[in-house]
Every structure is written in C-alpha cells, then in structure tokens.
Design a protein around this nucleic acid. Structure first.
Length: 970
RNA sequence: GGGCGAUUAGCUCAGUUGGCUAGAGCGCUUCCCUUACAAGGAAGAAGUCACAGGUUCGAGUCCUGUAUCGCCCACCA
C-alpha cells in the first residue's frame, strides 16, 4: 500500500493547514539569524508595513501580505538568508478615536471624562492610555492570528510594535539627533485644526467634500477716501484678521493704487495694498477662478494657507481672531490696541458661521456688499468629527524636511532612469545614490513630485496615544544646562522667549528631576504616528545600536517594500529620509506597489478601517491557499473580487466567488498528486528511456521554471500564478498525466519523470500555496524519497519551506519535441470535435487517416497510440468498409475520420461542409490580398511571409477537398 | 485645477519591444459519474478590443483628440 491512501479524495484545507503550521513552528522554519548567511550568500529582508491596531485585517491586507510571503518564501528557497520582520503600528489618532467611539457607544466614560480627570490632576491621561492599551492587545493578537492563518512566514520571534520599548528608544534617539542638528524646530504655523475635538490634524486626516457656498464681494474703502477696492471671498468672517489686500502687479489698476492703503471696515485697521502675482486676474471668459475673481484678494495670514504664504513674503502681521473652538475671540492673538479701535464687539463670542452672517449683514447694511454669487467648492472636514477644518495658527513641532539632507537626499536616492532631475552628484559618502527603484516605474513620479513640493512636516499631535515628545521647556534662558548638552544627554534650542530641552533618555531620572526642579514643563503632545513608522525599518532591528548589532548590519537596507499606492508619500518618503539621514543607507532598494481590490460594491479594501470581509472567513470556507492563489492572480490593476455573501461564508453554504478558482486549483493539485504518488511503485533508477510525452513535459517544465523566475524577479505576481496554473492544469494534468496513464505503472523511467515534475511543481507553487504543497511534498518524500532526472536539480530536504528552489537545465527545452506534441494535441482536438458533432459514444473506437501519405503523416502514424489515449481513435491503414464521417484540414494534411457502423446525416454534413467552404474562401481572399501587398512581402519578416504562403496553400487545398466532398454528397 | 490609470466575450479580467485566426476563469449550450479529481473531463456558442482621426505593409498594442469611469495631489478666490 502506498502512502496515498492517507490522502482524502477531496482536499480539506483546515486539517492540513493546522498540521503544516505546527510542523513549521516546531522546526522554527521562519526564524532567521544573521549568522546563518552562507559564505558569499546574500541576505534578503522584507519589513512588513505594520498594520494598524485599530481593527483586524481585511482583504487588502491579505493581498499585500500574501505577496510579501511569496517573495519571502521564494528567496528563502533560493538559499538567501531571509528575514520577514513582522509587527504592528499604534496608529495614534485613529486608534484613540476608535477607542473613544467604542466607549461612547457602550455609554462608558469616554475621553472627555478622562480629560477632566487629567485637568484635575487625577491621572486621566494614564488611565485612558490603559484603555487603549487593552484595545491594542486585543487587535494585535487578532492581526497576528490572521497573518499566521494566512501562512505568512514572518519571523515571529522578532515581532515588534511601534510603541514597544525597543521602537520607543529609536524614536527618542531619532528625535534627539534631528533636534540637535536643527532639523526639528518649534514654529507658529497654520495647521489643520479640528475645532470640535481641538487637535491639529495631519493633511491626510482631512477629507475634502464639495460644499455649496457663496462668493461675497466686499468693498474695502481706500484710506485716503479716494474710492474703494472690491475683494472676493468665500469666508467673510476672516476679514477681521485681514492685514493686507493683494493685487496682481500685471493688473492695470495696480499702478494707480501703488502705495495706497485700505481702511478695513468694522475693524478700522489701516492695511497696505501689496502686489503679488499669486492673485488671479479677473477674466469673464477665463477659468473658474478668474471668472469669480475681482482682482483683489483679502489677505488673512492667520486663517488661510495661501494668505499665510503671502504674509511671509511681505512680512505682514498675523492676527488670529478665533478661539480654538472656532468662535470669534480677541483673546488668541488679536492685539489689544488693534481691537480697541475696532467696532467688532458685536461678533465676539459668535461661532464662525454666525459671525459670517453677522458680518455679511453689516456689509449689506453699510452699502459695502457689492455682489453675492453661489459657488461650489471643496472644503476640508475632519475625518473624526466631520467638523469643517479651520486653518489655525498654533505652536507646533516641525521636521525641516525641506532641508537638503532630508528631501534632497530622498531625490538623490532615486534611480537615474526614474528621476528626471537626475541627481548625478558623486559624493562618495552617498553610495546609495540612484539605488531606489519603483515598480511600476510610474510611481516614481508621485514620489519625486512630492519631494519637489514638500513642506515642513508638523509632527506634534494634541493626543495621548503615541510617543510623547521628549522636550521640556521654560521661559527664559537658563545657562547651567550647557555641560549636560556637552555630555550629549540633552540638546537645547531657543525659540522665541522659550528654552526647549530635548532629553535623550527619558529614563535618565536625575535629569528629569533636575528639569522639574528648575521649573521646566514637559510638552504634553505626542508625535505623529508617521514619525515612528518612518523609523520602522531600523527601529525593529534595534537601532540606534550599531556596534555588534548583526541584525541591523545584515538586513538594513532591506530589499523591498511592498505596499498599496496610497501611502507612497506619507510613509515611504519618511522612511527613506530618516534611514538616509540616520544610517546613511536606504531602508530598502525596491518599492513594489500593487493594485487595490474592491469588494463587489465598489468599496476599496486597502484603505478604510474595518471595511470588508475578514480573511479568516475566506480561509474557513475556501482555504488559505485558495485565497492566496486567487489574490495573487489578480494583481495587475484594481480588481473586483466579487466576494461571496458573508452570511453564506459563515454558514458554510456554497456560493460562487472568485475564491472558487483557488479552491478548485488546490483540489486539482491535491488529486493530481494523489494519482502520481499512487503510481510511483519502482525505485529503479537504472535507465532513462523517455517517450515523446516525457520529453515534452520536461521541456515544458524547464520553460515554466524560467518563466516563474522571470515573473518573480519583476514582481509580476499575476504572471507567476497564472503561468503555474496553466502549466499544472493544462500541460501536466490534461495532457501529460493522461498520456502516461496506460504505461506509467510499468515504466520506472516514466515514474521518475512524473515524480520529478510533481516535485518541481510543488516547489514552484510553494510560495503562493504553502500549505497544500508542503503537505504533498511531505507525502512525496515518503513515497519516493529519491527523485530527479538528468538536467533537473532538486536536492532532498526535510521541509519544503526550507527546500532548495529547483534548477532545470534549459537545454531540456526542445522545440522539435514541443512542436511534435502540439501536432498530437491539435489532431486529437480535431478528432474529438468530429466525434462530438457526430455524437459518437466515448467507448466506441473510430478510425482515422491522414492524407497525403508524406512525412507529416509518418509522424502521425509514429505517435498513433497517443490518439487512442486522447481521442479513442485508431490510425487506420485500411478504412475500407467503414463510413467516412468527417474531415478536417490541419496545415498541409487532411484528417479523415471513419466509423465502422452508424448512419451519416448527409444533409447536416452538407450544411457543415458548405459553411466551412465559405470560411475557407474568405480566408483565401484575405491571404491572397496580403501576399499581393508589396509592402507586406518586402517589409514584413520573412518567416511571416512564408507562414502566410503556407497558410494560403493549405487553405486552398482545404477548399478543394471540401468542394469534392460536397460534390460527393450531392 | 494638476497628474496618473482604466475602457477587450453576459460577468471579472489577461494580452511585456506593433506580427499566426484576440485569450482565461465564471456563466451559458451539448455530451460524459472513463479507476486522481463532478470542486472533474470533452466539445461548442459568444468580442466593431469605448469613439474619431493619424503613423505603418500591418494597430487591442504607438501618436493626437473626444467620451465615460476611477485614483492621487492641490484648492475656503
């Protein structure tokens, strides 16, 4: 009895997956050590894009991580010292919001409660962080389970979290170095302010929505009483903070206004008219902006990003007229003396929208409202509170990414052919120049564009969940700290009236106590999540330890970052800049950006939180390998996965979905392997006598190995999956196994070919379908421990996950053999078609001949037994006494099929033949036309012309044959 | 507003320097429970490759324009 009896008739993923996972776990198969690098061997590393602990994984993650696992397993089998570093991201604002919402939904004390406690000095901050911590623990565990269930071969012993001690240390050290080097500064800038939750938001946390609004045209009188200018605005309430009116220098009115001033209505502030070519000239026929423009722009540097820029250019004062909650206030930067001379008392305390109405009303009543036009435009909203974002002036920490050492370096890192600005400096200290490559290449443009227009990065967040900023501050300029700075324990910077001290090591208790004693106050804010994820490739590996840190030395730079396209700028950019600055090397050399998938209702899966099906549902209903295969085969562009209905998945009911493809394929693999192993009865290796089918499948095997290597090297995952699918199902199962069925039991040589092909196929498919291939390979090791044929190198091993990637001598690719086999396939198909159209029972053997009797027919005759196997048709030297039932023209030969008994429907046959004659005549006309075309015969490649001639000849012949057959029937 | 991508069979999608009669899976029709697999096998029907021009002997593929859909970035004038 062979071991195949152990295998069920249908593949049951759940059992096998658990069994194989246990096997890999026990063997430590995913663990990597720097010392394991073979002499002269290469290391290979992928650092996982850490999933957010806000929620479990969705199918977008499943796709992303499947691709990473394929690369990891592939390179591990290639013999490279391969590490896949896993972990999760604390996702500051997102997680804090999710937890807050959950608490509110459960009617439990939420963040407001804890904020109150904190302000009462009762440690609300720490209590709330504990709440988030337990959320994090729950989802981190869920995420890990999901990844393991998918078969991700991460080195779990190295799993990290962006806020664990090791990563936190890296964050503090990075902050310290950037601070010390003047690349972190304190600045009063406009931020995206959410007045509802009162925190700054990152640009990506702002969602744009189209809003129906108005353009108001307000008249501002000239200070000398000589007239007025009309400004156009969608936000009249901000006029309280206007500090200039701008006009385009090309505007004909600019010259006569030069040097004049404006008296700001309500506020009575005298403000200058400045000339700036940012101002759009009015043009009734122009684009949207110029049609609405009056030519004059009110400049409010404290409440509009563009006005802020103009303010910087003209050194204008910034007057903030709002409180953090979005009400008009004179308490947050409106100079006392300036407010005192105004008539603005009536708007104080009003919400910004109430103030808008009040102010428009005022202009209307005072005859200064010239016009109102409806206008639809996009306005930013907080993705948390949905409140309209207010560009708000506040003190924040910034990373000076505009510095050449950061964004400039990132640009220089880009591969020469992907970088238009062609950074060709030859700074020998920057040996990473030109080493960063994007796949697909077009994403390099996104990356480059981002860095060319980059603005400094606001890294402080008014949140609790995150890395607390390691800076203490005090008003004034204490002097006795300098020795500490010289020791490298702190770095000091002065911004405005304040002295800021960055503490290198928070656990330095003496130091912290000293600062406390001196009256320093710690910054309450935390760092933007991207600050810590930007350090991820090095923080996970124990940076800043360099000396003796083999992990970091071996695997940084890593090889490839695999991600969806949405975070190229946010994350990739920051990793590149930080890694270059802190370690003078890239975080990775390749960036592979894959497509997104959607769930059938048009919802993207790589983006939103908690949206979509749990991969575990798919794994339970179809199996992990099925899910992985299906996802892998659809990576070329945004794909609709047409998910099965969730209820059906959970109830185990059968539904049609894309994942059926994978499940069916896994089952096919399972059964083909069962068949093959059931026939491996001999261990006789004494001879190699191959028949055509054997040579053919070895030729195909060499081809698919080459294609697979090429596809994976180019990140063409869909090609990889599809190529193997076709090879295995079409070539191996449909043709090779069928061809050898009658002979393989008694042919040891053929058994070796069969076993070898199965082994190679399992190895090639292992990265995409790890569980089922490992199981079958284990079985194969028992049934046929010694495998391999000449030209195929498949060293034995214990575990497929650690087995060597196969090597096949490409000289096994044999064009003659392939062409002979294609002939057999073509003829078999033609005979099958005739059988089918005449409804001949499968068991009835029929006869066929090939005319004329030349070399070609000789070939057919030589391989006649394959036609018995594939089409139950016998080559007949003597068809006398049989009834001729059908013909087909194949190249220069005519196939004639005979049947011993049975009637022939002459009328139907006549119709068929006539139809085919028509088709033949049409194609004759086409081919003749082509050959009469001088351009074609002179310029097209010779083999094409010859091919066309052959085709014409054979089609003409076919037409003749058809005609005579028709005549015979008539 | 700027940029990028897409448009191929009823559905979901392949189609790599321009070159055999444009492919696959699902679905559909017909036949087959043949000793690996019915989650299977054999055969078949089904396409104006979005539209209009252009380059070329030859265009799904390259160029220009148009339409529709999608994504990214910018934008409170």
């Amino acid at each position: 009895m062979t071991a195949t009896t152990d295998l069920e008739k249908t593949y049951d993923p759940s059992k096998v997956e658990d069994e194989m996972a246990a096997l890999w776990g026990a063997a430590g198969a995913f663990h990597a050590e720097p010392a394991d690098s073979k002499p002269g061997g290469k290391p290979y590393c992928i650092v996982i894009p850490p999933p957010n602990v806000t929620a479990g994984l969705h199918l977008g993650h499943a796709l992303n991580n499947t691709l990473q696992d394929i690369l990891t397993r592939y390179h591990r089998m290639l013999g490279e010292n391969t590490l896949w570093m896993p972990g999760t991201d604390h996702a500051g604002i997102a997680t804090q919001t999710v937890v807050d919402k959950r608490l509110q939904a459960e009617h439990k004390p939420a963040i407001q409660h804890y904020k109150n406690l904190e302000s009462e000095g009762k440690g609300g901050r720490d209590l709330f962080i504990k709440k988030i911590q337990s959320w994090k623990d729950e989802y981190e565990a869920q995420i890990t389970n999901q990844l393991k269930a998918m078969g991700c071969s991460c080195d779990w012993s190295r799993q990290r979290f962006t806020m664990d001690d090791i990563c936190a240390r890296a964050v503090r050290e990075a902050f310290f170095r950037l601070f010390k080097d003047g690349l972190i500064y304190r600045g009063k800038r406009l931020v995206n302010w959410d007045p509802a939750t009162q925190t700054a938001l990152a640009d990506d946390e702002v969602e744009m929505r189209d809003i129906d609004g108005f353009f108001w045209y307000l008249r501002y009188p000239l200070a000398d009483g000589s007239g007025h200018v009309t400004v156009a605005t969608t936000r009249p309430e901000t006029m309280l903070g206007d500090t200039a009116v701008a006009v385009n220098p090309k505007d004909p009115r600019a010259a006569e206004l030069r040097g004049k001033k404006v008296r700001l209505p309500i506020v009575n502030r005298i403000i200058p008219i400045v000339e700036d070519d940012y101002v759009v000239l009015p043009d009734p026929q122009g684009d949207e902006k110029s049609r609405y423009s009056s030519g004059f722009l009110k400049v409010t540097p404290a409440h509009d990003p563009n006005d802020y820029d103009i303010g910087q250019r003209f050194n204008l004062p910034m007057i903030n007229v709002m409180a953090p909650d979005g009400t008009i206030s004179d308490q947050y930067g409106w100079p006392l003396e300036d407010f005192a001379q105004s008539d603005a008392g009536f708007v104080l305390g009003l919400d910004r929208y109430e103030a808008r109405e009040a102010i428009v009303d005022w202009f209307r009543k005072n005859g200064l409202l010239e016009d109102v036009k409806p206008y639809r435009h996009a306005v930013g909203h907080s993705y948390r509170s949905h409140a309209t974002i207010e560009p708000y002036l506040s003190d924040q920490w910034y990373v000076k990414v505009t510095d050449d050492r950061l964004s400039g370096a990132a640009l220089r890192a880009m591969s020469g052919d992907q970088s238009s600005s062609a950074a060709t400096g030859h700074d020998s200290n920057e040996n990473w120049q030109g080493q960063l490559r994007f796949t697909p290449a077009r994403y390099a443009n996104t990356f480059r564009g981002w860095h060319e227009n980059i603005r400094d990065w606001c890294i402080s967040r008014q949140l609790w969940w995150g890395h607390r900023i390691p800076v203490w501050s005090i008003e004034g300029k204490p002097s006795k700290l300098d020795p500490l700075a010289r020791e490298g324990r702190i770095a000091i910077q002065q911004f405005g009236k304040f002295c800021y001290v960055c503490v290198r090591d928070e656990s330095d208790k003496d130091l912290v106590q000293l600062l406390d004693r001196l009256g320093f106050v710690r910054d309450p804010d935390v760092l933007d999540t991207w600050f810590s994820s930007g350090l991820w490739p090095i923080s996970t590996m124990g940076w800043p330890d360099e000396e003796g840190n083999d992990v970091l030395q071996t695997w940084n730079p890593s090889n490839v970052l695999c991600t969806a396209r949405e975070i190229i700028t946010l994350w990739v950019s920051r990793m590149v800049m930080f890694n270059l600055y802190l370690r003078n090397c890239l975080p990775f050399t390749d960036v592979f950006i894959h497509a997104m998938i959607q769930d059938g209702q048009g919802r993207k899966m790589s983006k939103s939180l908690g949206n979509g099906v749990d991969p575990l549902d798919i794994i339970h209903s179809h199996g992990a390998d099925a899910m992985r295969f299906t996802l892998t085969s659809m990576t070329t562009q945004t794909q609709d996965v047409r998910l099965p209905v969730k209820e059906n998945l959970q109830s185990g009911r059968n539904t049609s979905s894309k994942f059926d493809i994978g499940r069916n394929f896994a089952n096919k693999l399972w059964n083909a392997a069962r068949f093959a192993m059931g026939n491996l009865t001999s261990d006789d290796t004494s001879q190699e006598n191959y028949e055509l089918a054997d040579r053919w499948i070895l030729s195909r095997l060499a081809t698919i190995l080459r294609d697979t290597n090429e596809a994976l090297a180019r990140y063409e995952f869909s090609q990889y999956a599809q190529g193997l699918y076709d090879f295995f199902w079409r070539d191996f199962c449909d043709w090779y196994i069928e061809a050898v069925k009658p002979t393989v039991r008694d042919n040891p040589s053929q058994q070796r070919v069969l076993a070898t092909c199965l082994d190679v196929a399992l190895r090639l498919m292992h990265p995409e379908m790890p569980f089922v291939t490992e199981k079958l390979w284990q079985q194969l090791n028992e049934v046929a421990p010694r495998r391999g044929v000449g030209g195929v190198s498949i060293p034995a091993g214990e575990l497929l996950v650690r087995a060597a990637w196969p090597k096949v001598d490409y000289s096994l690719i044999n064009k003659q053999v392939e062409s002979d086999f294609v002939t057999i396939q073509t003829w078999s198909a033609a005979i099958r078609e005739i059988r089918q159209s005449h409804q001949i029972p499968p068991r009835e053997t029929i006869q066929f001949i090939s005319e004329p009797d030349d070399d070609k027919t000789g070939k057919i005759k030589q391989h006649a037994r394959y036609f018995e196997i594939f089409a139950n048709a016998a080559f007949s030297n003597d068809a006398s006494g049989a009834t001729r039932i059908g013909t087909a023209q194949i190249e220069t030969q005519t196939l004639v099929v005979f049947r011993q008994v049975g009637d022939v429907d002459h009328e139907a046959e006549h119709d068929r033949l006539t139809k085919r004659l028509d088709e033949a005549r049409k194609s004759i006309a086409t081919l003749r036309g082509r050959l009469n075309n001088k351009g074609y015969t002179e310029k097209a490649p010779a083999h094409l012309v010859q091919q066309t001639r052959d085709q014409l000849a054979s089609t003409e012949k076919e037409a003749d044959a058809l005609q005579s057959q028709i005549a015979a029937i008539e």
